[in-house]
Amino acid sequence: MNDNAIEIQGLGKRFGDFALKDVSFSLPRGYVMGLIGPNGAGKTTIAKLVMNLIRRDTGTIRVFGKDNVAAEVEVRARIGFVYDEPCFYDDANLEQHARAIAPLYPGWKQSRCERLADRFGVPPRKKFKALSHGMKRKLALVLALSHDADLLILDEPTSGLDPLFRRDLLDCLADVLQDEGKSVLFSTHIVSDLERVADYVTFLNQGQILFSLDKEELAENWAIIKGDESVVAAVEECDRRGIRKSRYGVEVLTCNVGSARKLLGADAVVERASLEDIMVLMTQQEDRHAA
């Protein structure tokens, strides 16, 4: 049995002046991977390529060991997908949507759909257009989870939601994930959402993967070192992942905090790097290189 829910090798796709270049990563079964990056980095493109909603130019995508194009129907039956934009009928409600798509999924469980709707607080008979933005997202999640999918692909499920609703939605999601050990690919640019749910983080910028790592490894080895200009020189160039200068001093993002600590000694001000810090500093560095 293949141990990866998703295996992507050398994936490429070109759209006009945007190109996804040589993307490779894998998501082990039963884990949650956060796909982060600024807007336009290629997160949605990857999600759509995995779903075979757009055609890849190069590379391979295997879902549970099967090619996602050759075994399109079989693969999709095992995936629950939430789009970044609503794609439901305005004048239909949750019940009608569920009744319409249920026969297409071999694993659909109506009792599960009803339980999830109740847990997420989605009114089953309220028309889609009458739901709030957050409720629309929850409706999409209920439908994506009702066929007992082994893999969830959530494309920006929390974008446009206020912090309270976001927290509520993530709590609902975390409950379901904790109980059932599903694999999840969660794309977002709101990185704080991932701090609580992700096991792995893949960072994408301008169509390229900058890293794909275990979150524990990020927490252990990545840090921000604050100080004056001497800090920059003290951190080995190969370990530097980003630099931010301001009138108050310099912040260096390192991927080898142990080595930096040895070099700088007790004088170093070392802070844990949040995913947001990592994304901001690395994006700025990449953009400077690109410029």
Binding site: R76, P86, C87, F88, Y89
Partner: peptide, 18 residues
């Protein structure tokens, strides 16, 4: 026409069908 109006083609395309 309704599928186009509601941008619901994406829903159909994500289902386990060709």
């Amino acid at each position: 026409v309704r599928e186009d109006k509601f941008k619901a083609r994406a829903l159909g395309c994500s289902l386990p069908v060709t």
